[in-house]
């Protein structure tokens, strides 16, 4: 099933994307409203919240170029030293930019 990208087509396609995205934004909260929040569920949630980030970042570090790896390394080290996110992010981006100019 396809929609042509003429007339109202693009708008319908965009509305489908919007509904699917909204379902992801609301779905997690909706499902959790049926789950009793026990201590175990809390531990699941807090472990998962860090794991989401790790799961996003690991393939980025492994499959990325050396500029990407250097950016992540620089951000991690800067964050450990100064403990402020903005300088850490800026340092990472600058590291990637400089490395890719070489």
């Amino acid at each position: 099933m396809s929609i042509e990208t003429t007339g109202y087509g693009p708008l319908i396609i965009i509305l489908i994307m919007a509904v699917v995205t909204l379902a992801t934004r609301w779905g997690g909260v909706f499902v959790m409203s049926f789950v009793p929040i026990s201590y175990r569920v809390k531990q699941f949630i807090s472990a998962m919240s860090g794991s989401v980030l790790i799961a996003l970042l690991t393939p980025l570090a492994i499959s990325g170029d050396n500029g990407a790896r250097l950016a992540l390394l620089t951000t991690a080290v800067t964050m450990l030293i100064v403990k402020k996110p903005l300088p850490a992010i800026a340092a990472g981006i600058i590291a990637a930019a400089l490395f890719r100019q070489i």
């Binding site: 699917v20 995205t21 992801t24 934004r25 609301w26 779905g27 997690g28 909260v29 909706f30 499902v31 959790m32 409203s33 929040i37 949630i45 807090s46 998962m48 919240s49 989401v52 996003l56």
Partner: peptide, 12 residues
């Protein structure tokens, strides 16, 4: 966008 599901669950 499935990670939004996890965000919603963790914020619940």
């Amino acid at each position: 966008n499935a990670r939004h599901l996890l965000m919603g669950a963790t914020l619940y």
